[in-house]
Each structure stands twice: as structure tokens, then as C-alpha cells.
Amino acid sequence: MKIAVCIKQVPTREWQPRLNDTKTWIRDQDASYEMNEPDAYALEEGLRLKEKHGGEVVVCSAGPARAAQVLREALARGADRAIHVEDEQIGAADAFVVTEALAAAMREEQFDLVLTGLQSDDQGFAQTGVILAERLGMPHATIIMEVQAADGRLRVKRELEGGWFQWIAMSLPAVLTIQSGINQLRYATLKGIMAAKKKEIRKVAAPAGLSARQRILKLDFPEKGKKTQMIAGGPEEAARELVRRLREEARAL
């Protein structure tokens, strides 16, 4: 099975945001980056499917030069090769632009299965996998918690809301968006890291003239919706004060 896994490089969870001068994007130079967590689960699922059914895993990312770091990491975890749609602007682009760029680079590869995370930890559109399916002319299913593949067909477990699930069958080729927690992630071994150095990262330019369908006017820090009473002091002092307020003000105890 020829499997593509789309991964995105996003700021780390610990990163404290700072805005650029026009307040339309973050200060990229301050951020530290990592592989988008749901994409890491998609990669793991791709590697497991390859181990079971044979074939290859190709990781694909649209991002600036620094995104090569997450592709290298994916190669170290076991992916066979990588495609990097390199563009300095595309890291902040919308899902329309990103999927056009990815589809242009991926179409000729004729993948059997394309996996993405269900959404990204940066802009969080939850659109990329589904639009990519449309652009590649493949069927899709989203928020997947289990993948069974046999005889050119898939049977996948889709998560619904409130603890419900549903099995969905479809033919390959297909696109799946993967839910976090579908599997246990593996980490790169030293051997994997060494092997990754010899693996190919094919760089592709983004097609010219892609036009976004949305624009960020402004980024802000969220306003506090409620009046949160912050309780200061050392641990004992804060604990005492919290319990007092919960008893006397909130009557929650």
C-alpha cells in the first residue's frame, strides 16, 4: 500500500504567543516548533499499516524551510521519503491554499491511502484532509479511531459525539483524518535518526497564483469572559483562601 501522511509543523504547546507589529500573525521568530500532535498519530497509523500490509509511507508537508525538521523527524520514526512543498508564506495560509499546494505535489504519486491529523494545533481549521480528498477525487472519512484494510477496501471506525462510534466502509484510494489517541506513538531511535539522514526529501515549489479564501484582520489575546478571581500567595495560603471562598462565597462545598 502506498501511503501518504500529511504533517504540519506548528508552535509547541508550551509556546507563549507574541504578536507581530501589525497584529495579524504571530512573531514566527520567537516560536519553537514541533509536529502537530494529531498528525503524529496519523503518521503512526501509516507506519503500522505499512508494517502489516507492506508498501511505503511518504510524509508530505507544506511549509517554510524550517518545516523540514518535522519531515526529518517523521523519516527518523520510519517514513520512507518526504515531499516538502516549500514556501515561506504557506505556513500561515488557509486550507484552500495548503490543499492546492499539497494536491499539486501529491497527485502524480497516485497514493492508495492519504492520512492527515483531524486538525492542526495552530489555526485549527479541521479542513485540510477533507478538502484534499475533494481535490484528489478520493472518498474520505473523518475523526477515525481504527483502520482496517483488506482487498483494496477500508473499514474505519469514525468517532461521533458523546461516546458514539460508527464503522464506515469504502474503496481505496481514500483519505482519512485521524483522531488523537488512535494508537500509541513511537519515538525515533538512534538507528532511525541515522537512517533518516540518507532518506530523500523532495522539495517542490508551491504552484503560483494560489488565492486564499479568508484573511486574518487581527489577532488578539482572548478577553476573559468571566471575572476570574485569581488567588495569589504560597501553596498553603492559596489553598486556604480557595477553600474559604468556595465555602463562603460560592457555597460549592
Partner: peptide
């Protein structure tokens, strides 16, 4: 208005086209 970056920021977004 939509949350971004895990709710650390809020974006004001205009659709285009």
C-alpha cells in the same frame, strides 16, 4: 471571531471571494 493556537489567541477573520 475564531480561536487559534489552542485558544491562546482569537482571530478576526473575513471570508474572501
Amino acid at each position: 471571531a475564531r480561536p487559534m493556537f489552542q485558544g491562546k489567541l482569537v482571530a478576526q477573520v473575513v471570508p474572501e471571494g
